[in-house]
Amino acid sequence: MPTTTELELSRRGLLAGSAATAAIVAAPVGAAPATPRQATAAPTLPVRFKVNGERRELSLDPRTTLLDALREHLHLTGTKKGCDHGQCGACTVMVDGVRINSCLSLAVMHEGDEITTIEGLGTPDKLHPMQAAFVKYDGYQCGYCTPGQICSAVAVLDEIKRGVPSHAQDDLNAKPTATNVELRERMSGNICRCGAYSNIAEAMAEVAGAKA
């Protein structure tokens, strides 16, 4: 039975504790590192970029991903950490107008960049059309993947508009259109474990002005 103390652990504390345990368990079994672990982190580095139109300046451990800079340093927690390995898309943000996995990019490499997160798309009082469409079409259940889905969805419609080709196209030289097959192919980097995919595609189709 868990003790009261254990029950009182915050979810965040518990997750951090579990990760540390996993690391301790893994270390002796795994291959001995080729180089000794450095006791201290490298010196922090300054980085300046714009997030949702606002100039931000941070001093960061070079290891900090763009995702962690947004969440842990700028407290923009709308962007989510799912797998942290570029497989799930929960961390999708737009940098200089194109979507990327913020978990697979170092924050210090974004000097001078313009970053848009879910917080920069709309507000509860003034939803972005894609946010409104996700609500209308039930494009989510638990909501965890949703900020990444919406950022990706907005960027996908822009990619189609700009004529970026996709695997779904028969004719590479034709202009792509927002068909259901196109939307599904282009959204394959965003995983939804609740399985809201068909509703997400309908929401996107409405915003694109096409039929799902």
Binding site: R99, S166, G189
Partner: peptide, 26 residues
């Protein structure tokens, strides 16, 4: 997406868009 690649080297465009995700390819 390069127009010359799409027109003259279609196998290359096809291979690239068959790999990874939109976010990674960006």
């Amino acid at each position: 997406a390069d127009a010359r690649v799409r027109r003259d080297y279609g196998v290359l465009t096809r291979a690239i868009v068959a790999g990874a995700s939109g976010q990674l390819r960006n």
